[in-house]
Structure formats: structure tokens, C-alpha cells
Design a binder for these strands. Structure first.
Length: 438
DNA sequence: TCTGGGGTCCTAGGACCC
DNA sequence: TCTGGGGTCCTAGGACCC
């Protein structure tokens, strides 16, 4: 049986989220920055046309930003995560199966939907997602996920929907696609393929199996099969994480061990929340600290602490992280980044009871954290938090130009005023007009 | 002055076992 | 002179994705 997939990709997702709540950004060049206001991670079409590249440090384009009047915003993940959920929920009403691939993309396996007009289906997705969430999307349809990605990329510049079924049309498109633009082929692999004489997606599709395998191993060969229309990538499922990482750059360099300890406690707290959401426990706690590689004396180190039994208790993980820090900390360095990685993850049902832990204690602990997580989800992150994560948090990351969390925090929900003016409840600042709220 | 965060999969190579 | 073969498990590191 032939397979069939649609890829739905949100256009300039972070910028689009901001525009839903601040229509003044419509039609203007806008960029969104990474954590700590470091690099540019999302651009409006106007910003792309102005010549601003993806992923560059923002300080390298100050001049361009000033000249072109580009609006610059810090990233607001509370908003983007919530908007993403709304988009995915909408897609679930349109197709029986939705594989959420990233915050702004999803594959829809279409086999068995018996669609007569695929282009019309794509149009319908665009229209309804736009209407229900305010987010513009592009749709690519093809017989494999890799081909659907290529179709979607082509559709970005055209009508917003592209269906690729016919073989010769595929060849034409593949010939126009540089090999490193194929999903799964990055610059490194692209270079190797070019050296072997394969420069376009078409070359890779027509390449000899043994040559491709020699250059890129089985993953590259799978990609080639996908280009030939043979679906070879397993279903993209939301599997339980095998590792949970929380790391961040500091807002300013940190020298003191105590501040590093606070930062690690904070990361450990976040990581444990994710762990418990997955209903799991971790047996290994890796901590790392890093000075960054750009300036001054460079030092980075990591170590792994093994727990006596897998645990989900924030206090236990924080203690282990502190133990790790004692092993690797060296004074006299300016640290820019730290992180906590939880691994050796097992489901709670598989946790072996430690000989020395009485069973009732475990039950109590589960109930305690159930309550803690519930309170934090209802009243906002950190309503209840370990004192070890610090009070002043002088190391916290920079987010100088962050928009309100319009959809997830009561105090930041926009108010619609008379004459259609919209005011942010907390800051009192006007943030848009009613033209965005139809 | 200023350079993200979080994840996956694969391979190679060493340790160890019988 | 000559020193097996096959398997598993673990870790580090590379490459990729958004």
C-alpha cells in the first residue's frame, strides 16, 4: 500500500504568535531572540527580505536592525508553547492521527482518510488553523515524510499548499533542491555527498546504495529510500524521554560556587518537573559547568552522580547536583553556563524498592510531589519552590524585550478597552488595537 | 559589552564474558 | 615463529533536527 503524509508547518512561528496579540507587528520586519537575548531564532518575511540571517548573534546585526527599523523581541516560550498546543489541538480535529514533530510542525499520516482532493484538504487545514488560532501555516503532501518536507518548503514561497504525487514533477523539484536542504542531511553530510558526486536531492535519490551507505551509513540510505517514495522513517511518536536536560546561560558571568549551586538547583527543579510529568524516576544525575569558548580562561567540566535508587524527588536530585558541583568546581573562572542532565530513566512501576527505604515513605513522597506540581500548575511556576534555588537569582537570564504571557497568566491577559485600545493589565502599556481580535 | 536550549540516533572502541 | 571468535554492554563523540 502506498503511504501518504501531510506536513503542516507554522510560518515564522514565534513571530506569528506575537502578531496574534500585537497586530501592530503585522507587515513590519520582526525578529525573536533566543534565550538570554543571544541569537536570532525567528524572523518575519520582511526581516528575511531585509537580509537578516537565521541563528546569528543579534549584536552582529545592530546596524541593519536600526536601519531597517526591525522590531526585536525576547522569546516568550510560555506563549509559544500554549499557541503550539492550540494549533495541534486544531489539527487533531482535522485528521485521525497527528505526529507532533516540533513546537511548530506536525506530520499527518493520511492513509485511510480516503481524500479525493488533497490540495483542497491542504487549503482546509490552512483556513481552519488560521481561523481558530490566528497562526498561518504551510502544508506539503507526499508519499514519505522526507518528500512532504521538501514539498512544504517549496510551498512556503508559493500558494501555501503543495501536493507532490506525480513522479516527473518530483524529479523536477528534487533537481532544484540542494542536497543539504534534504531533511536529515546537514552541512557535514552534504559536503561528503558532494565529494561523492551527489549535489542535489535528485542525485541522492538516484545514487547507488552501496556508495550512499559507505558515505553516510544506514541513516543516509534511509533518507535515499524516502526520496524514492519508500517510507523508511518510523512513526514519529512522543516517546518517553531517555534523557532530560535543563541548562541555561547566565545573564552575566558567575564566579561564586554558591551562585553556581543555586543555578544547578534551579535546573534540577525544572528537570524533576519534566521527569514527574513523564511518570518516571532517574538513576543518574550529570552536572556540567562551562565558561563558554569565546573569551577569557576556558574551562568546562561535567560529572555524573549515581543515585542509590532511581528517584523523582527534587530534594534528592538537588543534593546530587551539589555533590557533583563539589567534584568539578574550580575557582578563578568566570562561568557562563550550567546544566543538569537526568538519565537512567525508568518508569515508576519499574523502580526497585531499595532495601533500606520503607515502602510507606515512597507513597508519601508521591503524594507530596503530586500536591506541589498541582499547586505550581494552578498558581504559576515556582509558587512553591526549593529555597536552594535562591532568592535574588542574580544569575537569571536576560529577557529585556519580552511580551506578556497573554494566554497563560491571568494578570497578563490583554484587556480590550473602549475605542478598541488594548492595555496590558500589569504594565499599563498599550499593546495593540482591536483589529487583531475578530 | 553581546554567541540558545533540548533532544535523537548512530558508530566506534574498550571492557568483559564464555 | 605461532596467541580465537563471538557476543553484550557501556561510553564518548559526531551529526542531525528545530
Amino acid at each position: 500500500m502506498n503511504s501518504l503524509f501531510a506536513l503542516v508547518d507554522c510560518n515564522n512561528f514565534y513571530v506569528s504568535c506575537e502578531r496574534v496579540f500585537n497586530p501592530r507587528l503585522l507587515g513590519k520586519p520582526v525578529v525573536i531572540l533566543s534565550n538570554n537575548d543571544g541569537c536570532i531564532v525567528s524572523r518575519s518575511n520582511e526581516a528575511k527580505r531585509a537580509g537578516i540571517s537565521m541563528g546569528v548573534p543579534v549584536y552582529q546585526c545592530h546596524e541593519l536592525i536600526r536601519r531597517m527599523g526591525v522590531r526585536v523581541l525576547s522569546s516568550n516560550y510560555a506563549l509559544y508553547g500554549d499557541m503550539s498546543d492550540r494549533v495541534m489541538e486544531t489539527l487533531r480535529t482535522l485528521a485521525p492521527e497527528v505526529e507532533v514533530y516540533s513546537i511548530d510542525e506536525a506530520f499527518l499520516p493520511l492513509d485511510g482518510m480516503k481524500l479525493k482532493d488533497l490540495a483542497a484538504f491542504g487549503e482546509r487545514i490552512r483556513r481552519i488553523v488560521r481561523q481558530w488560532t490566528g497562526i498561518p501555516v504551510t502544508v506539503g503532501v507526499a508519499s514519505t515524510r522526507t518528500l512532504a518536507k521538501i514539498a512544504c518548503a517549496r510551498a512556503k514561497n508559493t500558494s501555501g499548499v503543495l501536493v507532490v504525487e506525480d513522479g516527473s514533477m518530483t524529479a523536477e523539484i528534487l533537481a532544484a533542491t540542494p542536497v543539504e536542504e534534504v531533511w536529515g542531511i546537514g552541512d557535514r553530510s552534504g559536503l561528503k555527498l558532494r565529494k561523492a558526486g551527489m549535489e542535489t536531492a535528485l542525485d541522492l535519490r538516484n545514487g547507488q546504495d552501496n556508495l550512499i551507505r559507505k558515505v553516510l551509513h544506514v541513516t543516509g540510505l534511509r533518507t535515499a529510500y524516502e526520496l524514492r517514495g519508500k517510507s523508511s522513517i518510523e512513526s514519529i511518536r512522543i516517546a518517553d524521554k531517555k534523557a532530560i536536560m535543563c541548562s541555561r546561560s547566565f545573564g552575566r558571568p558567575v564566579e561564586e560556587k554558591n551562585e553556581l549551586r543555586e543555578g544547578l538547583a534551579y535546573h534540577a527543579t525544572r528537570a524533576c518537573e519534566k521527569l514527574r510529568r513523564q511518570g518516571a524516576a532517574a538513576g543518574l544525575v550529570t552536572v556540567f559547568i562551562d565558561t563558554g569558548r569565546f573569551r577569557g580562561k576556558v574551562y568546562s567540566a561535567s560529572t555524573t552522580v549515581t543515585l542509590t535508587e532511581p528517584d523523582f524527588d527534587t530534594a534528592v536530585i538537588i543534593r546530587a547536583a551539589g555533590e557533583g558541583l563539589e567534584r568539578i568546581f574550580r575557582s578563578g573562572f568566570l562561568y557562563l553556563k550550567s546544566g543538569v542532565l537526568l538519565s537512567g530513566i525508568v518508569g515508576l512501576d519499574q523502580v526497585q524498592q531499595n532495601l533500606f527505604t520503607p515502602g510507606r515513605g515512597a507513597e508519601k513522597k508521591r503524594n507530596l510531589y503530586k500536591a506541589v506540581d498541582l499547586i505550581n500548575s494552578r498558581f504559576g511556576r515556582d509558587s512553591l519552590r526549593p529555597a536552594a534555588t535562591g532568592l535574588s537569582r542574580k544569575w537569571a537570564m536576560k529577557r529585556k524585550m519580552c511580551s506578556p504571557r497573554y494566554t497563560t497568566v491571568w494578570g497578563e491577559i490583554p484587556l480590550i478597552r473602549d475605542r478598541g485600545r488594548i492595555k496590558n493589565r500589569q504594565t499599563g502599556k498599550m499593546i495593540g488595537d482591536s483589529s487583531g481580535f475578530r
